[in-house]
């Protein structure tokens, strides 16, 4: 049996309406303990309203060497961004 507790990644929603954001990591024996530890470690100053934890070994990351093929193609799709469109002055707040 491995005595060292596994590593978990912690994601915190700082207030309702916002996304969960990566806050850091910690060690815990299971998900329940991980959530409690996250509460004690990462929300000591009322930083959160909701906590996600996931065991670090289950996180799959993209490979930095692939970053050209993964992200650069989005570079020339300026039409996906609202500022691409010049609208007449009269059309405010769109």
């Amino acid at each position: 049996m491995n005595k060292d507790w596994p590593l978990w990644e912690v994601f915190i929603r700082s207030k309702n309406g916002l996304d969960h954001k990566h806050a850091g990591s910690l060690h815990a024996t299971d998900a329940r303990m991980a959530i409690e530890n996250a509460r004690d470690v990462y929300t000591r100053r009322m930083e959160g309203v909701s906590i996600w934890v996931v065991e670090s070994k289950y996180i799959h990351a993209s490979n930095p060497e692939d970053s050209d093929s993964l992200y650069d193609p989005a570079n020339d799709k300026a039409y996906r961004h609202p500022t691409f469109y010049d609208l007449p002055e009269e059309v405010k707040n769109m």
Partner: peptide
């Protein structure tokens, strides 16, 4: 703290 860490790990294992 060693026995505490071991106990928690053992219990989690049992639960799984």
């Amino acid at each position: 703290g060693a026995w505490v860490r071991e106990a928690a790990a053992a219990h989690a294992e049992k639960r799984r």
